[in-house]
Design a protein around this nucleic acid. Structure first.
Ligand SMILES: [Mn+2]
Ligand SMILES: [Mn+2]
Ligand SMILES: [Zn+2]
Ligand SMILES: [Zn+2]
Lengths: 122, 122
DNA sequence: CATATTAATGCAACTATATTGCATTTGTAA
DNA sequence: TTACAAATGCAATATAGTTGCATTAATATG
């Protein structure tokens, strides 16, 4: 795992962003720093390294956000809020929903997304 | 809204399926009954008509399942279980998660997916 | 510092999935 | 039975992500 310019920049962007970023947004922010294929590959690596987690939006689009306390395995069971107006996706780190599903299902991962209007768009 | 053969067949397939179906699965089951573009359009209409709801899977793929009690508006705030082994997606109609997010967010829709192993794959 | 090793990158081609425009077909109301 | 618009088929197009391979560059080692 090498500390390349692309990796550093992309991780910086994601870490410093208040909201989750899409591949397209990252590409635009990088402004030609690297090829779009490299962005895909760097994102994959950052996820493997537990530095970033992937969010599947309500419209099926993907967003990426920084991980907190995911050193050995991803545990982003928090809710993601997706604004239907501005398209922003925010990690609500402190909100973990409570649910109970039949014992016969073995739960491994969780993806909770709530959509509506964010504070800026209300 | 006309009652065409394609519409009837696709709705039948979805209604009678224990698990949610993807576009590809529907296409295969229909075995050439209609063009794949028609399947996309019929699915859109069925969703508009509140007869079917769309599920965004953990891998970003789409699945379609029959609605229950969604005559005037969709209210599928139940959990969906996505099996990482066989790929099946099941509506857990009775499971509605409890969560509380800051008042400044206006919630409209909800998409909860839990992944792991389904009863058949345990 | 110089060099060797191989991870990472760029590029082009390819794949998979979904959408659009338009001519034709078909369901249904009159 | 006819007229009209909804629905369909088909081809073209769009969008997103993947792959193979030659080249570049990060880092470990002497
Ligand atoms: Mn998150
Ligand atoms: Mn459902
Ligand atoms: Zn917003
Ligand atoms: Zn299964």
């Amino acid at each position: 795992m090498r500390n390349t310019i692309a990796r550093t920049q992309i991780l910086d962007l994601i870490t410093n962003s208040k909201t989750a970023l899409s591949h397209a947004e990252i590409e635009q922010l990088l402004d030609g720093l690297c090829n779009r294929v490299t962005i895909y590959r760097v994102l994959d690596r950052l996820i493997d390294d537990k530095l970033v987690h992937k969010i599947i939006n309500v419209d099926g689009s993907l967003k990426f956000a920084a991980c907190r306390n995911c050193s050995d395995h991803h545990h982003d069971s928090h809710i993601h809020f997706s604004c239907l107006n501005c398209g922003s996706v925010t990690c609500l780190e402190s909100v973990e929903p409570v649910f109970k599903i039949p014992r016969k299902y073995k739960v491994q991962e969780v993806n909770f997304t709530v959509s509506g209007l964010c504070p800026d768009c209300t």
